[in-house]
């Protein structure tokens, strides 16, 4: 059954149609790659799902109860189980790796619960830190990490949130080939339990993910199917791959 159903959303900025009657569905678990040229509406699509941008028309339905996410705040959507990883690693550089992860660990987000709640995260922290290979650097400030380590920290924070849907924006950007392999494995592993949407530019990376691909163009779905299927679609070749 579908976890997220985007139904006929449109949004325009000053007359420019960034998203044009876009519909999109993702199952749980599922791994999906979203590709498209610049300005195809990939980022806007993620902004709408995460509540940052409100569409002019359309619905975004979530979960078993078909909850409409439109009009909910970013934080409410995040708590509902939508996690987002940004293209540029955004971690809190002034804070230690531990603090970054502790903030992300799933739990009550109410200010008073945060202030008074004294819960024991140590085990979970260790587990995640080990998984992302930063166990030895828990006390370090995030700003002192290398670019790749920051990427991993952000993925770790995403995991700590325990989302049902992960929106991942260009995860492989700036990674070494070795790290790319690790990332691919991690995403595939995650996709066995979660819904994962990967927005990617890099065709090789998408090929390695070996999953269903959605091609966006001018704010709408141009094609959908396996990697081989979409790469043979003449329209796709025309607007994207051909160039």
């Amino acid at each position: 059954m579908s976890l997220l159903e985007v139904d006929g959303i449109s949004v325009s900025f000053d007359g420019f149609r960034a998203i044009n009657n876009l519909s999109f569905t993702i199952e749980e678990p599922e791994l999906r790659a979203v590709i498209g040229p610049n300005g195809a509406g990939k980022t806007t699509f993620m902004d709408i799902v995460t509540g940052k941008t409100r569409p002019d028309t359309g619905k975004v339905l979530w979960g078993e109860d078909n909850l409409n996410l439109i009009g909910r705040s970013e934080s409410a959507i995040a708590r509902a189980g939508v996690g987002r990883k940004f293209q540029k690693p955004t971690v809190f550089e002034d804070q230690s790796v531990r603090e970054n992860l502790a903030m992300a660990i799933k739990g009550d987000r109410n200010p008073f619960a945060v202030l008074f709640g004294r819960r024991d995260d140590a085990a979970r922290l260790t587990e995640i830190a080990t998984e992302i290979g930063l166990f030895g650097r828990l006390g370090r400030k995030a700003g002192e990490l290398s670019h790749g380590q920051k990427q991993w920290l952000e993925i770790g924070m995403l995991l700590a949130q325990e989302p049902r849907l992960l929106l991942v924006d260009e995860p492989a950007a700036g990674m070494t080939p070795e790290e790319r392999t690790q990332t691919t494995d991690l995403l595939k592993r995650l996709a066995t339990r979660h819904a994962v949407v990967v927005v990617e530019h890099d065709m090789d990376f998408v090929r390695r993910l070996d999953c269903r691909v959605t091609v966006l163009h001018e704010g709408r779905v141009l094609a959908e199917g396996s990697v081989d299927h979409v790469t043979q679609n003449p329209e796709v070749i025309d607007v994207y791959l051909g160039r």
Binding site: A78, R79, G83, T90, D94, Q95, R109, N110, L115
Partner: peptide, 27 residues
């Protein structure tokens, strides 16, 4: 503690804190 962590995070990048599920305005 975690409150301080969240507050400083709000200071540095409040949009990111929102995507972590914290209601920034309440904090």
């Amino acid at each position: 503690g975690r409150m301080g962590s969240v507050l400083r995070a709000v200071r540095d990048d409040e949009a990111r804190v929102r995507f972590l599920g914290y209601h920034v305005e309440s904090f």
